[in-house]
Amino acid sequence: MEDRKKDHIDLAFKSQVAAPHSDSRFSYEPLMGSHMQGVLEPFPFLGKTMRVPIWVSSMTGGTALARTINTNLARACNEFGMGMGLGSCRILLEKEEYFADFDMRSIIGDDLPFYANIGIAQLERMLQDGTYHKLIGLVERLRADGLIIHVNPIQEWLQPEGDLLHHAPFSIVEEFLSLTKMKVIVKEVGQGMGPESIRKILSLPIEALEFAAFGGTNFASVELQRSTPEQQELFGPLALIGHTAEEMLGVVNEMVDSKQAIQCKQVIISGGVKTFLDGYYLTNRCKLPSIYGQASGFLKFARGDYAELKAYTQGQINGLLFAKSFLRVKE
C-alpha cells in the first residue's frame, strides 16, 4: 500500500494535463452511472443482428498474410458480434488459388454481416464487357451478404498501373443496381466524399454508405510514395484533399433534418476513427442507424496471434461500456 501511494505521488507529477487538451465532445457525469450499468444491446444492421456497433473495414486483398488476417478478423467478429468487409476480391476473379484466403463465412457464421469487395473501375469494366455475372457468382460462392463497391478515383489516377474511369461512379453503381438485386455498400478509400456525392449516393437503394473519410489511411499518399520524387512534388497536394467523418456526418444529418429523399438509411462511419471515443461520439451524433468502422486499428493486431486481436477488440468494447455509463455527447 505504501509503495502504491508513493508511485501515485511520483506519477501525479508526470501526469499534469493542460486544460486546452481536454476532450470537449463529452460531458463527464461521474455521479450518473456505475461500472456495472453499461450494456450493449443487440441491434439490427444490414439485415442481420449485431452485438456491438463495430465494423471491420475492408483492408487487405491478395497478400501473403491475407488468410491469417482474414481468419483472425472473422474469428473476432464471430466472438464479439461485429460485421466484416473483405479487402478487394479482384484477385479471386483472376486466380482461383486465393479463394481460401477470403472464404470466411464458416468462421464468422451465418448470423453476422459479411461483404465481398470490388473497386469501381473493375466494376465498370465488367459492366462494359458483360462479365459482371462473374462478380455475382463470386459473391454467391463466398456466401457473402452482398458487395462493397469502393470508389477511389484519386488513388487510381495516381497509381502507375491504375484504371481510369470512363463514367461517373454514381452512374456505374446505378447501372449495377438496375441489373441485380444484390445488396450493395458504397465506400471511399480514405478521402471521404463531398456533399453532392453523399446526397446522390444516399438517394440510391443501397444498404449502407461507408464514409472511409479523410483522417485514416490515405491511399493517395500510399500511391504517391510509390512514384518518383518529381511526381510526389507535383501531385502531393492531392493527398490533402478530402472530407472528415465529422464533416460527412454533418451532411447526412442535414439531409435527415431537411427530409430530403433518402433510400440508403444506414451508415458505417470510418476514416480517422482512432479510438472507441471517436466511434461513440460519431455514432451517437448520427441521425441514421450507424456503426463505426476501423481498418488499420484491427490490422495492427490481426497479423499474428489471435489473442492480441481479441484483447484489442475486448478493450474497444470495454471502453464503449464505460462511455455509455459515464459520458454524454454534447449537442
Rank of each mutant, 00 (worst) to 15 (best):
G146I: 03
Y312T: 00
E2T: 11
A66P: 05
K134D: 13
F45C: 04
K14S: 11
N253P: 11
E156F: 07
R51V: 04
S296T: 14
E94V: 12
I118S: 07
L46N: 04
P289L: 03
A311Q: 07
C286V: 11
S22W: 11
R67E: 15
I136G: 07
I136Q: 13
Y312F: 14
R51P: 00
L209S: 05
M1N: 05
G304K: 04
G190Q: 11
A208M: 02
R199F: 02
G87A: 09
Q191W: 06
G279F: 02
Q225A: 14
D145E: 08
L238R: 05
Q37S: 15
E156V: 06
Q266T: 09
A239Q: 15
E97T: 15
A19Q: 08
Q316N: 06
F99D: 11
E188Y: 11
K287E: 06
I69T: 01
E210P: 01
Y115A: 02
E230Y: 09
S24N: 12
K187R: 09
T313R: 02
L127S: 03
G33H: 10
Q263G: 03
S296I: 04
S106W: 01
A168T: 07
S203K: 12
M193W: 07
T68S: 00
V273N: 05
C264M: 10
N218K: 08
E196D: 15
F276S: 10
Y28G: 06
L40D: 02
A116M: 07
A307W: 00
V267Y: 00
D101N: 11
G87C: 05
M84Y: 13
R51D: 04
S270R: 06
N70V: 08
H166V: 05
M50W: 04
E79P: 00
V56P: 01
G250K: 12
G190M: 10
L249I: 10
N318P: 02
S270Y: 05
Q159W: 08
D7K: 13
L299F: 13
E174Y: 03
T131Y: 04
L147K: 04
R285S: 08
N117F: 08
I268Q: 01
G47K: 09
A323M: 03
I241V: 15
S221E: 15
K134A: 10
E41R: 09
D110T: 13
G33D: 10
Y115K: 01
K200M: 09
S221Y: 14
I120M: 11
E124D: 08
C89A: 10
L31W: 06
V151R: 02
R75Q: 13
L11W: 08
Y292N: 06
G304Q: 02
K300F: 00
H21Q: 14
H8Q: 10
I69R: 00
Q263N: 12
N117T: 07
F322M: 14
E140R: 14
Q122I: 07
S221P: 01
T244Y: 06
Y132T: 02
I154T: 13
I172V: 15
V52H: 12
Y28D: 07
A66F: 06
P20C: 11
G236P: 10
F99I: 11
S270G: 07
R4K: 14
L282N: 05
D163Q: 12
G162F: 03
K265E: 15
V184N: 03
F322H: 13
Y115G: 01
T275N: 03
D163P: 01
V252D: 00
F322I: 13
